[in-house]
Design a protein around this nucleic acid. Structure first.
Length: 277
DNA sequence: CCAGCCCCCTGTCGGC
DNA sequence: TGCCGACAGGGGGCTG
């Protein structure tokens, strides 16, 4: 579910309801959702801290607190994050595994059906996120850096795009969408791309992600905005989830293959395989 | 460096 | 109707 556009939408939606509020207490019923520190220290340290800001880096949501501490959340496949009145029971959402009680009488809830998501409390965010590559929508995502990162990489370009060390925030959906926009076959070798292809892809990544944000993320499965409403990005996909449907550019049937263990969608006409493959 | 496979979980969907 | 396998937006780890 959550790739950069979805996580960005969640961060934006949480900013107004969270900034300025104070965390009073913490509750959890799934120990493994707490990545670090352990439950006792997590609760003791976070209690009493005021929320200063809500931001995003890659697919992580960053909630800045006092004293240099930051609450980080990774939604993985099925995580949801939203604020609700404490009085309103969360029985309706039986997948809430971590809650933070706020001084406003509300709760920040982390709901996660598949239990892959994780929360962290850290006073050294830079170290925790040091493995992440550049933010694709920021100035340090330069074409030169993008190109040099591909040198010597013989792997399929799609699998490289999914690597967070290479570029942060791209996931299975937007990798397919960006490759379509650039007219590049997902199985093409990264180091076999021409300079022109690199430039097209560099631009296409940003266009695909910006479109995703503009449509407030893709609600294909569990993803919802913090206000509970669905995003609309899925209605504008060119290839993802469109197997057998006509390509929006040329009318050919969209193909679906397995690449890097992930479902991969592309137009065989607009994204032809390299002869060298 | 890289492809391929497993695992972490739960739910849904299609085929038989 | 019921069962069973495949698959799902992510990512860590292992092997060869």
């Amino acid at each position: 579910m959550p790739e950069l556009p979805e996580v960005e939408t969640v961060a934006r939606g949480l900013r107004a309801p969270l900034v300025g509020k104070r965390i009073k207490a913490m509750w959890h019923d799934w120990e493994r959702a707490l990545h670090s520190p352990g439950a006792a220290e997590f609760a003791a340290r976070i209690s009493g801290q005021k929320i200063r800001a809500v931001n995003r880096r890659g697919k992580y949501i960053l909630i800045a607190l006092d004293a240099g501490d930051t609450l980080l959340i990774h939604l993985k496949m099925s995580g949801r994050l939203y604020v609700a009145p404490a009085a309103e029971e969360h029985e309706a959402d039986r997948w809430v595994h971590v809650r933070f009680d706020l001084d406003s009488g509300e709760q920040l809830r982390f709901s996660d059906l598949r239990k892959f998501g994780r929360v962290y409390l850290s006073n050294d965010v830079a170290a925790l996120l040091a493995h992440l590559g550049p933010e694709p929508l920021s100035a340090d995502f330069t074409l030169a850096r993008f190109q040099s990162g591909m040198r010597g990489r013989s792997r399929a370009i799609k699998s490289l795009l999914l690597q967070q060390e290479f570029v942060a925030g791209i996931g299975n959906i937007y990798a397919d969408e960006a490759l379509f926009r650039a007219g590049i076959n997902p199985a093409a070798r990264a180091n076999g791309l021409s300079e022109e292809d690199c430039a097209l892809l560099h631009r296409a990544i940003q266009d695909a992600l910006r479109a995703g944000i503009a449509h407030e993320g893709a609600s294909i499965g569990w993803y919802r905005k913090p206000d509970g409403k669905r995003g609309n990005s899925q209605n504008y996909f060119y290839v993802y989830g469109r197997e057998g449907l006509p390509c929006r550019h040329c009318g050919s049937a969209i193909n679906k293959i397995r690449l890097a263990q992930r479902g991969t969608h592309f137009c065989p006409q607009c994204q032809p395989a390299q002869a060298a493959d």
